[in-house]
Amino acid sequence: MLRVIRFELYKLFTSKKVLVTFLVLMGISLMLAVGINLMNSMEEAHKLHMTGQIFPVFLLVNLSDTLLPIMLVVLLVGLIADEYRDGTLKLPLLRPISRGELLLGKMTAAVVMVVVLMAVTLVGGYAAGTLIFGWEKEVIIGEQMFMVESVTQVLGFYLLTMIPFIAYSFIILFFSMMFANSGVAIGAAVGVHFMLLFTGGFFEKLQPAILNTYYYMGGMALTPTLNWQELLGNLAVISAYMLVFTVINFITFKKKDILY
């Protein structure tokens, strides 16, 4: 099994697409920090007090809705759709590897990609934030006060945000499996993300059942005492998404005819 995971990770992380995406992400982190700094220097503008400690949190909050899900789709959709279309998906399937093992390898690679994407955001956030704003522990963003006292809190914030993104990565793999054309698969996966986002926005009562709601649960790591009950409830919903899409993915992949 480890051989399959290594095989999938090698392919994924030697892709130029990954390097370009990470560079873009770092660039956006820097541009956002510079932009806030410029805005703060204007007399009439609403001041946004920012520090190197809080900027990674601010960055992730602002990217969670749009840029990160889209980047994740672009990075992961090729794991099945592109390989299927290129005819390379059959290469490992002609070895003594079961389809289940191959899919597990791809799902593991997807999880690792989420972790690395978050890590790059975190590093970019700290680097840009510290460079532009310097280092402070406590900060107020807009009307909300955040007390970021340690790097551990920021790590906790990222860790909690990572979990719903892992569930979303399984949804992306499903669409990557359903469509031979990666363009269509990207459109479908991004479309579902925004559909869920808008549904949550319009129908408040549905929010607890919508995955996108939990992209912001990282905030729990910044509160003085962790609400375990709320956290477990959130994790239960996210786990349900993970479980459902894991089962669907395994069934779909097992039945998929490899025609290219």
């Binding site: 095989f7 490992p92 070895r95 003594p96």
Partner: peptide
């Protein structure tokens, strides 16, 4: 069909690792 961005050797090596 092969992974186009790799060499012939690398393609074989990847398969051999399986």
């Amino acid at each position: 069909k092969f992974f186009q961005s790799y060499s012939g050797y690398k393609n074989l090596k990847l398969m051999a690792q399986l």
